[in-house]
Design a protein around this nucleic acid. Structure first.
Lengths: 222, 222
DNA sequence: AATGCCAAATTGTTATAACAAATTGCGCAC
DNA sequence: GTGCGCAATTTGTTATAACAATTTGGCATT
């Protein structure tokens, strides 16, 4: 991505790699909500010194993917019931917009990618591979959103998804136990083929709403 | 939470102060869009060494209030026509939600604060004090939004507003020249008194929409 | 057994120096 | 005059060390 010319080199900065690595770990629920992290322990875990770790941590903190306490210690955020509702409210507002914008750019390759992601997702679910399920679900949604070409909406939505990461480890066992998860991917794909904006918005909204119901149901159990 | 005891001190960290200072400068249009900033020049300008500046810059970059180029140089973002539309679309989606949530917590003091901010704003506008106009307009809106008590929505909306800052210097001369700016603050205040959610949403939406029209009109002129 | 306190360890903060890449500017050749 | 290339400057990156504040754990006192 950095360059396609034959000359340029510019190895990626350490702090960028650390940011990506930490972000990924957060988004897949590798850290428990409320868990404390320290700069030195992160530096030891990921390599490098404290300076580049600092950059990565502040970036994540600005995205609310990490929490800095009043005494300046670093914590993995804990999602409350109210925050989950609000986060999913924002998702429900933004994602249909991105989908609608993407409608102007649908092509066959994109539909194929989405259909494949959906298929892989269902297979993963059947096999109890929750991590795979989440990865493919992510791919399905963001293939769509990225097609919008929006450099405003897409990063915002991406940041929202990361914030659910630490909470996901709570949900994992329940996702794995479910046989017939009802998603609205098929409806979304059909709406894309038909270029039916209203139907597409409905499908995406319903998908987010289901996620909300699922998470809140889960929250009440534990 | 930080401390209520008489002993605690903990002077605020330098990087926090730098973040606030830089953010404020950006939000009031002190830097021109496209302008390059360097860590060392910022350190010289604000005081402190490069390390705390780094934290502040990365935080701002994560909020998209600063732009890091592919060659890692720091720029004040340039807003295109499309981005302004998208940013204001998101504002139009989020701000009525925050307002509606705030409706549950309206009290007399808050209405007074908002009325005062509105009054100050109109006075500033009449005197051609654009900076004051913007500050009081900000106060009017965020007194409302903050009343929602949402720790999710409010920071997101705040980040959106900051991103318009550098663009504002383009708009300044035009704002100053306008005599009868039509805002929808009175309608919003009335809706708050009546606890009329639909009317409140309409007023806030209209206010954002006017901002869009104004900015796009301005963009086309220059 | 509970509480208060002090010392040790841990943690975030900041400045600095060495380094690598990119940018700039000047001068030379055509 | 224009374009090329090399050197000087500027810029971001990273590690490290010294420092201040917090947190932790144990010990003594009640």
């Amino acid at each position: 991505m950095s360059d396609n010319s034959a000359k340029a080199k510019t190895t990626a900065p350490l702090h960028e790699a650390l940011y990506q690595a930490l972000r990924k770990k957060l988004s897949i629920g590798a850290f428990a909500p409320g868990q404390a992290l320290s700069l030195r322990s992160l530096a030891a875990q990921f390599g490098g010194s404290v300076t580049p770790i600092r950059d990565a941590v502040w970036r994540l903190a600005a995205e609310m993917a990490l929490n800095i306490s009043s005494t300046r210690r670093i914590f993995v955020p804990k999602l409350t019931d109210d925050k989950i509702r609000e986060l999913l409210l924002v998702r429900a507002l933004l994602e249909p917009e991105a989908a609608a914008m993407a409608l102007n750019y649908v092509d066959a390759a994109m539909l194929d990618d989405m259909a494949l992601a959906d298929s892989n997702m269902n297979k993963a679910l059947k096999e109890g591979d929750v991590a795979g399920y989440m990865a493919h679900n992510h791919a399905f949604h963001f293939t769509l959103y990225r097609a919008s070409g929006s450099s405003v909406l897409v990063p915002m939505i991406e940041a929202l998804w990361v914030r659910f990461g630490p909470f996901m480890r709570h949900v994992y066992p329940d996702v794995a136990g479910i046989n017939g998860v009802e998603d609205h991917h098929a409806e979304a794909l059909a709406a894309l083929k038909d270029k039916d904006e209203a139907a597409l918005r409905r499908a995406i909204s319903a998908d987010v709403k289901d996620a909300l119901d699922f998470m809140l149901h889960d929250l009440n159990e534990h």
